[in-house]
């Protein structure tokens, strides 16, 4: 696969490692009363759809950016690539 890196242009997927579901960006609030439950869900419940999926990819052999790649897991078509830090910042978290 070729991943269109937002900073570096098209890069071969061999340069990356994949972590899976981008829901890992939404780390729960550890101080909340229900933290035990929300952290359990955060850690163990991941989506793995056949179709459009938002995933975390790490450019380990490159500039070490974490990317959010929106990919169709059935066709490998890549619909969008964003810097994870941009996604988190735009989400207004933290």
């Amino acid at each position: 696969m070729i991943i269109e890196h937002p900073l570096l242009g098209p890069r071969d997927s061999q340069e990356f490692t994949c972590l899976g579901d981008a829901s890992l960006l939404q780390r729960p609030d550890a101080s909340a009363d229900d933290a035990a439950e929300t952290f359990f869900d955060y850690q163990y419940l991941r989506d793995n759809p056949a179709g459009t999926h938002r995933e975390l990819w790490y450019h380990e052999m490159g500039d070490r950016s974490w990317l959010v790649v929106t990919r169709d897991t059935a066709t490998h078509e890549i619909l969008a690539v964003e810097l994870a830090s941009d996604v988190v910042t735009a989400g207004g978290r933290s």
């Binding site: 490692t17 960006l25 780390r27 790490y58 950016s65 974490w66 994870a84 830090s85 988190v88 910042t89």
Partner: peptide, 14 residues
């Protein structure tokens, strides 16, 4: 190192 970059970029880019 990968984990630290994850925390830095994906959890606390602020």
């Amino acid at each position: 190192y990968r984990h630290l970059e994850f925390v830095r970029q994906c959890l606390r880019p602020d």
